[in-house]
């Protein structure tokens, strides 16, 4: 998505934000596996909604920060979806959440965030690179601070669905 010269993206516009997020995830998958993803529903979680969440088996989480704005970006997968995706990346069968899977979800999060950072910075933001962390565990939930608004973008692959989520507060 091309940025309008000199205009800051309105971060309360979840539809625009989710479009950018989807494009960054899709670009990453396209470059690495030559497959296109399909955009699913966008959901907004706020104070009460943040307690109602999807259940995941592995999540990559990274800070989205600049001097006066803080947020988080995450990619969350079920085992059923992540194994065939990672098998495609490695050209090898991956059937359990081990060091290699953890490593890959961290790197995937890092690469998508690199693109997302660039896209948001094209609008005049100054987001910096951060280090990703990985959370794993059957049916875990990723909660956000009650003061934040979180946009959840459902993404469909040929192997199942996963979620890209972006949250900000102080915007």
């Amino acid at each position: 998505m091309a940025a309008e010269q000199g205009s800051l993206l309105d971060l309360s516009r979840g539809d625009q934000l989710c479009q950018i997020v989807f494009e960054c995830v899709n670009e990453t998958f396209y470059q690495m596996t030559q497959t296109n993803l399909r955009k699913g529903q966008v959901r907004v979680f706020n104070t009460e909604g943040s307690l109602i969440n999807y259940k995941h088996d592995i999540s990559g989480i990274i800070g989205v920060v600049q001097d006066d704005l803080e947020g988080t970006f995450s990619l969350s997968f079920s085992s059923e979806t992540v194994f065939p995706i990672l098998s495609e990346f490695y050209s090898k069968d991956i059937k359990k959440i081990d060091d290699r899977a953890i490593d890959s979800v961290a790197e995937l999060t890092n690469v998508v965030y690199g693109l997302l950072k660039e896209s948001l910075n094209d609008y005049g933001y100054g987001f910096k690179m951060c280090l990703p962390i990985v959370v794993m565990g059957p049916n875990h939930k990723v909660f956000s601070p009650l003061s934040a608004t979180k946009w959840s973008q459902e993404i469909h692959t040929n192997h199942g669905t996963f979620w890209a989520e972006l949250l900000f507060h102080n915007f």
Binding site: M32, Y90, S91, D103, S104, A106, E107
Partner: peptide, 11 residues
């Protein structure tokens, strides 16, 4: 440090 990147380039 990420094995996924090494594996991608190796392939």
């Amino acid at each position: 440090d990420f094995s996924m990147v090494r594996a991608s380039i190796k392939n």
